[in-house]
Write a protein that binds this DNA or RNA. Structure first.
Length: 333
DNA sequence: AACTCGGGGTG
DNA sequence: CACCCAGAGTT
């Protein structure tokens, strides 16, 4: 093993973050952690990791649960397809396969997650390239925009021969998360400083991805029935979750007519989704239908905001549609 | 290769 | 604000 590899592992042993899944070898638990961590910060994932495993401690428990229960456990974590894929995966296999190639075939497992599970839970010698590793390697080798395949082959070639590949992968990720930061990297504290070719201008590597943000103006129609608010199963965005009807603002007249209601404006909520800013005009109307208590359903954060906004207007007018509203989480109407 | 999918932290 | 986060799936 080369000196710099030894240096990184020594740094990792001394500086590794203490995380709930550190040292975990149960492949199911490793999988849940890795899926939750897809495009999600460690601090945000931790409470979901605990809650999800408490609710679904084994693959079998997950398999036996209704999808809606799984989505409810995922509520607020975002990228809800991840939860649906986990649930589907649990139906498809009796136990998790033990190789990278087989794991890669499962729904929701791409090159990163398959490699993470294979290396951490099963000790397979395969590189896991996440955003951290991409940044670390881009800087060490001064690459502005490396292709994923190039990066994977590079990372694969760096894996030490006789070390725990799971620990190695996590060492690179921790280095990216704690030292080789996107902005303001702490190069003087880096065990790879001596060999890093990008350290003179670390923020050039990799080149930032510029995404244009566009605004979208929508309307949310909160219909108050006899037992609560009208909810529908959402499709497209927030697939599989529930919420009040949400549509482009221009469609409000025909939507209102279809429900036979006269909506009144109830304010606006703002919500950001990937490279898009949503401005949602909230409309409220009494409705000749039943409706239901939204707390029983998995709701995206946007719908929590919409319902809170509607609730605020109702409270201001002294209207209490349901007598036993509890001041916790989403209000029931 | 480019787009889509949530939500939140940070400079 | 912009950019990023232990990415994957689709077009």
């Amino acid at each position: 093993m080369e000196a710099w590899q030894k240096a990184l592992l020594a740094w990792y042993r001394a500086q590794a973050r203490l995380l709930p899944w550190r040292g975990e070898k149960d492949p199911y638990r490793v999988l849940v952690a890795e899926v939750l961590l897809q495009q999600t910060r460690v601090a945000q994932a931790i409470p979901y990791y605990r809650r999800f495993l408490e609710r679904f401690p084994t693959l079998k428990a997950l398999r036996g649960a209704p999808l809606e229960e799984v989505l409810k456990a995922w509520q607020g974590a975002g990228y809800y397809r991840r939860a649906a894929n986990l649930h589907r995966l649990a139906q498809e296999v009796e136990a998790l396969p033990r190789s990278y190639a087989e794991l890669l075939k499962l729904p929701g497992l791409g090159p990163y997650t398959a490699a993470a599970v294979a290396s951490i839970a099963f000790g397979e010698r395969v590189a896991a390239v996440d955003g951290n590793v991409r940044r670390v390697l881009s800087r060490v080798f001064a690459l502005e925009n490396p292709a994923p395949k190039v990066l994977w082959e590079l990372a694969q070639g760096l894996l030490p021969e006789a070390e725990d590949p799971g620990a190695w992968n996590q060492a690179l990720m921790d280095l990216g998360a704690e030292v080789c930061l996107p902005r303001g990297p702490r190069c003087t504290a880096c065990p790879l400083e001596a060999l890093c070719r990008g350290k003179e201008a670390p923020e050039r590597f990799p080149r930032p991805r510029r995404r244009r943000v566009q605004e979208e103006i929508l309307a949310a129609l909160v219909l108050l029935g006899r037992k609560g608010v009208h909810l529908e199963r959402l499709s497209g965005r927030f697939q599989g979750l529930y919420g009040v009807p949400l549509f482009p603002l221009a469609e409000l007249p025909q939507r209102a007519e279809a429900f036979g209601v006269r909506p009144q404006p109830a304010g606006e909520v703002r919500h950001a989704v990937t490279h898009r800013r949503l401005r949602v005009q909230v409309y409220l109307a009494p409705w000749d239908g039943e409706g239901e208590d939204p707390r029983g359903r998995p709701l995206p954060k946007l719908m929590e905001k919409v319902l809170r906004q509607a609730q605020a207007l109702l409270a201001h007018e002294g209207v209490v549609p349901l007598p036993h509203a509890k001041p916790q989480g989403v209000e029931p109407f």
